[in-house]
Simulated scan of single mutants.
Amino acid sequence: MPSLDFEAEKSEFRVFYEQNLSLLNDAKSSFIALLTALVTHSRSIDVSKVDGRVKEKEECIRKFSRKYRPALEETNTPYEIKTHISDLIGLRIVCLYEDEIEKIAAVVRDHFEVIEITVGLTQAGFS
């Protein structure tokens, strides 16, 4: 049940996380397999790697505390941490060429509902 007790909500989130970690890891593996198949079989795209991660539980708590907690507590709105963490599973597709990015994005848009796009840093290789 949502509350304004941050210590209690942290404890509840830690229990939720531990109870669901195996499921989250299985989901991550399934999404990696699905994306690998979609990208390699849908179009001729040179993909170096598809990998993923389950966000660490303490990082989830820090993100909630930094991004959501102040406004919720200021407005006296009870909360549960788990309902505010929308990126428990993250996936990354590494491609060899920059012009592959739009092809990969098209494959993702064709098979998933895209809620938000976050632009990250691009790493460059040197020879």
Rank of each mutant, 00 (worst) to 15 (best):
S42G: 14
I85R: 08
V47F: 10
H84N: 07
S42A: 10
N20A: 02
E98R: 10
R53S: 05
D51L: 12
Y68D: 12
K28L: 13
L96D: 03
Y79A: 10
R43L: 12
I32C: 12
L34S: 03
K28W: 08
S22H: 12
C95W: 00
E59G: 03
T83W: 08
E73I: 09
L88H: 08
D51H: 11
I89M: 14
K82S: 13
N20Y: 07
S65D: 13
S29H: 11
Y68R: 10
S22N: 11
S48K: 14
R92C: 02
A71W: 01
E98A: 14
L34Y: 07
L35M: 09
R69Y: 15
I93Y: 02
L24A: 11
K55N: 09
I93K: 04
R62H: 09
N76R: 14
E58M: 03
I81L: 00
S48M: 10
L91V: 05
C95G: 03
L88E: 03
K82D: 02
S22C: 01
P70M: 09
Y79N: 06
L88S: 06
I45T: 06
N25M: 10
L24I: 04
R62K: 15
K49A: 08
Q19E: 15
L34C: 05
E74G: 04
T75F: 12
R66A: 05
K57T: 06
E73H: 00
I45V: 15
F31H: 15
D51F: 15
K67S: 04
H84I: 01
P78T: 06
Y79H: 07
D46V: 10
D26K: 15
Y97K: 14
V54W: 10
S42C: 10
V54H: 14
H84A: 01
I45P: 03
L23T: 08
P70I: 08
P70A: 11
K67T: 11
C95I: 15
S42F: 04
R66E: 12
V94G: 01
G90H: 05
T40M: 07
I32V: 15
Y79E: 02
K82C: 00
I89L: 12
G90E: 03
D26M: 06
I89D: 09
T77C: 02
T40R: 15
L38N: 03
E98Q: 10
H84L: 03
V54E: 11
S86F: 09
R43T: 05
P70E: 09
K55Q: 06
K55M: 07
I81Q: 01
S22T: 13
A33H: 10
K55D: 05
G90N: 04
K49R: 13
